[in-house]
Design a protein around this nucleic acid. Sequence first.
DNA 1: GTGCCACTTCAAGTCGACTTGAGGTCAAGA
DNA 2: TCTTGACCTCAAGTCGACTTGAAGTGGCAC
Lengths: 144, 144
Amino acid sequence: MKSLDIGEVAKRSGVPASTLRFYEEKGLIRSIGRRGLRRLFDHGVLERLALIAVGRAAGFTLEEIARMFTPQGGLRIDRRMLVAKADELDATIRKLTAMRDGLRHAAACRAPSHMECPSFRRIVRAAAAHVIGEPNRKLRRNRH
Amino acid sequence: MKSLDIGEVAKRSGVPASTLRFYEEKGLIRSIGRRGLRRLFDHGVLERLALIAVGRAAGFTLEEIARMFTPQGGLRIDRRMLVAKADELDATIRKLTAMRDGLRHAAACRAPSHMECPSFRRIVRAAAAHVIGEPNRKLRRNRH
DNA sequence: GTGCCACTTCAAGTCGACTTGAGGTCAAGA
DNA sequence: TCTTGACCTCAAGTCGACTTGAAGTGGCAC
């Protein structure tokens, strides 16, 4: 198996070289050596990057993900942790679903102004009730 | 109607005073005057804050929300914008749902290691496919 | 051998939404 | 009158995940 240089890994994984260096610095991936200054990666790094992508998509932080890898390079994922994250996703999904329905209603409603639309007023009240005690759950947005 | 001082608004809305000052600076809310140095707010600010909360929950940025208010204090929400946001939420919901199901499967699976679990491998592959062209959609997390 | 350009390091910048801190003001209750 | 503490301003800091820039190195095709 030939080793890959950083540009090759970037091309195959879709992850920018700057990010790969950043991930290495954070201990999320490892290079198997150098050719001169240049990092060399094993093919296994591609699967590792895929795992990192799953973790990110599921809402884990990079630090949490780092803790799921053993120093030997294996995986150590607590099943309870998966369940907990699934439950968390569930809650988020329910909230987003309610919001989506509210938005669709409001968009369809023919009241002259939104504040005269009963369903719009309903989601405003619901959201207002949620503010207290839930100061800052947010959706990350696409860059640019 | 008595006007409210910033502490009163904070207490009733659950939004910290520092945030209220920040929102005023950004043009999201307005104070109706001062008593000495202190801001005075109209009761209407509470509804306005509720609207801001809805917008945030639906995934709009503060800047986008600011643009939904007319200089006169009214609402000017493009219905197509609501539909677009609802569609966006839909896509997010679908993705999160797939991820949640994958996590639940992986948690329930009795394979000795996760990488030997077919459903886990499936979500890893799916996520890997998503990395390309979608570099950075993320879930905001609760603060501490 | 030589030139190019993909790589290297390290520090600093970015984004959004706020928070925090220092240093100051002042309305109102005792 | 004095004290208190809630308010004020303005600048800077925070968080997570990267990106960007400057300045330098060296592998490899010609």
